[in-house]
Design a protein around this nucleic acid. Structure first.
Length: 582
RNA sequence: GGGGCUGUAGUUCAGUUGGUUAGAACGCCGGCCUGUCAAGCCGGAGGUCGCGGGUUCAAGUCCCGUCAGUCCCGCCA
């Protein structure tokens, strides 16, 4: 048979009477005795084939035996359907192919699940047969969107003088940040490379080298526990710029984001993006990655709580509330569910009461006397059928618990419009966090510049120093994060000291980098986009695995090829590695 | 590391208070059928109830452990 003349998503009434050759997979079969309909599918679409025993030239018995996902080549004539037989659901629905000849190119075994319906199998089975799941329209679309996003990113950045430069995948292990994936060196016994958690140091060194605008679409690896938006290997759009401050970076990145949404999905994002300081985001939304598609802001409730007779309130650092309408939609069961959510965030409980006709009811309402109730109704602007959820705890727990509840309430009340995109920059992060031992740890990473005028300020009140970091959040997803970096080696060294890294450690881990900073470093800063999360937003998926061709499970297994797997003793011996039997 | 949910036919699920031979739909196999597009009709095959242990006269069902998937907390600069 000749090579294919058209794809399965191409033919319309314009090609009526044309002789064509098509290739594709059997998507569905409708057998009617002497006439057989087959939908032939490729990535471009579906075309209906008609096999009529009267006109078909080949062996009709072969056609009768075809099964789903067989690969075919067919020859036939494009034929306009009767108007009553049009299929409006597919592009090629006006025509069908009157087949004269067929070649069964390759047979398919009976399938482990129904390919036309992704819900016909659980995810573990679909991942084992990922090549079959990837034939579904949904995943094909997701990967097409991903492709368009790569191209949009490259064209925007390239047109704005950013150079795409590759950095090593085998690199030095450093102690900061996430757990490294390690790669043993055969040549250097007992030594290891690490896979990059990000190309952070390389891109800063590229700035020192004078490539004042760099980007890379690059795989990064972090050996930490996974989530629905986290994979052990993931893709970043890694970007760095010289002679800029945070506003230059944010401006370019807004334009990049806008360009990507416009080219890939024809969505216009309003610029400039909204900006929120970290402390305002935590205070109002209980999250450093707030979803701004709905309101439900947190309100300070301490003033009223302290006037109540509810003793639990009296010891708490912070008391916050979220005020919600539609109290009648919150059953006992739903409130219990919200309480569980609050508890997973560390809250000891979730207090609540409902607002009736100028009085409170349910929950902890009895701890508020009539005067206090009226005062609250007045000053908090409460109306009938409101419900208030209250958490009293440390400031952090009160905010994050209510932040989690805020999101669940929005889902429960259907307040989230899925077609809307609300980007927001989060700025003014604290420079440092602290661990259980009260030791300072970097909130962003140790190369982030502090927001100070004088190096001596680093000696004072470290917990209140802000950094020059910024995150881009869209609809509650942290899509990008970056900062202006330390280009003064003295400040960089000082920060390592504050992080309690001793001189030897600094020398052996980062010595080469501090040394590099001393040879004429331009002021610089950058950002990295979580490319998978960005594609997830563009595709409307709620799961990162749906936008990655071959993802791993939440325990970092690849169910299709069964990695990770054991290796031979010979391989281990070459690497001088011994496995502990336990 | 901790918690929630899930695991029964090829697949998705049902399976009552622990009680006879574990059901349905789709898929598969066979038959009928010339206008379907989730085709229809008739018939058939198909099960170590994730795995291991325990309680019991009796376990898909209860208990303990374990494995896998998933969601969340910790963690992920």
């Amino acid at each position: 048979m000749e090579h294919r003349t058209h794809t399965c998503g191409q033919l319309t009434s314009k090609e009526n009477d044309l002789k064509v050759v098509l290739n594709g997979w059997v998507n569905s079969i409708r057998l009617h005795g002497q006439i057989i309909f087959i939908d032939l599918r490729d990535r471009y679409g579906k075309t209906q084939l008609v096999f009529d025993s009267k006109t078909f030239l080949g062996d009709f018995e072969i056609v009768k035996k075809l099964s789903l996902e067989d690969v075919l080549a067919i020859e036939g004539i494009v034929s306009l359907r009767a108007q009553s037989a049009f299929n409006k659901n597919i592009i090629t629905g006006q025509i069908e192919i009157l087949v004269s000849n067929i070649l069964l190119v390759n047979e398919a075994k009976p399938l482990p699940f129904v390919i036309s319906n992704r819900n016909s199998a659980e995810e573990n089975l679909r991942l084992k047969y990922r090549y079959l799941e990837l034939r579904t329209e949904e995943l094909q679309n997701n990967l097409i969107i991903r492709h368009k996003a790569y191209q949009a990113v490259r064209s925007y950045l390239s047109n704005n003088d950013f150079l795409e430069i590759e950095t090593p995948v085998l690199m030095k292990s450093t102690p900061e940040g996430a757990r490294d994936y390690l790669v043993p060196s055969r040549i250097h016994e007992g030594r290891f490379y690490a896979l990059p958690q990000s190309p952070q140091l390389y891109k800063q060194i590229l700035m020192i080298a004078g490539f004042d605008r760099y980007f890379q679409i690059v795989k990064c690896f972090r050996d930490e526990d996974l989530r629905s938006d986290r994979q052990p290997e993931f893709t970043q759009i890694d970007i760095e710029m010289s002679f800029v401050d945070e506003y230059h970076v944010m401006d370019y990145m807004e334009k990049l984001t806008k360009h990507v949404f416009k080219t890939v999905k024809n969505i216009e994002l309003d610029t400039p993006f909204e900006k929120l300081t970290w402390s305002k985001a935590m205070d109002s939304y209980g999250s450093d990655k707030p979803d701004l598609r709905f309101e439900l802001k947190l309100t300070d409730f301490k003033e009223y709580a302290l006037k109540s007779s509810f003793k639990t309130f009296f010891e708490a650092d912070a008391i916050k509330t979220v005020i919600v309408n539609n109290a009648d939609l919150f059953t006992r069961k739903k409130i219990d569910n919200l309480t569980d959510i609050a508890k997973t965030c560390g809250a000891k409980g979730l207090a609540w009461f409902k607002v009736g006709n100028n009085e409170l009811s349910g929950g902890i309402s009895k701890f508020f006397d009539e005067d206090l109730s009226l005062e609250m109704i007045e000053t908090l602007n409460l109306s009938e059928n409101d419900i208030l959820f209250i958490v009293a705890d440390s400031h952090k727990v009160a905010c994050t618990a209510l932040g989690a509840i805020r999101i669940e309430i929005a889902k429960h009340l259907n307040l989230i419009d899925v077609g809307v995109f609300k980007p927001v920059w989060i700025t003014d992060f604290p420079m440092f966090d602290h661990d259980d031992m009260d030791q300072l740890t970097p909130m962003h990473h140790p190369f982030t510049a502090p927001k100070i005028d004088n190096i001596n300020d680093l000696n004072l009140d470290q917990k209140n120093i802000l950094s020059r970091a910024y995150d881009l959040t869209i609809n509650g997803n942290e899509v990008a994060g970056g900062s202006i970096r330390n280009y003064d080696p003295k400040i960089q060294s000082k920060i390592f000291e504050l992080l309690k890294m001793n001189k030897d450690e600094i020398d052996s881990k980062f010595g080469f980098f501090i040394e590099a900073l001393k040879y004429g470093t331009p002021p610089h800063g950058g950002i990295a986009f979580g490319f998978d999360r960005l594609v997830m937003l563009l595709s409307g998926s709620d799961n990162i695995r749906d936008v990655i061709a071959f993802p791993k499970t939440t325990s970092a297994n690849s169910l299709m090829d069964n990695s990770p797997s054991n290796v031979s003793n010979l391989q281990l011996e070459e690497l001088n590695i011994k496995i502990n039997e336990s």
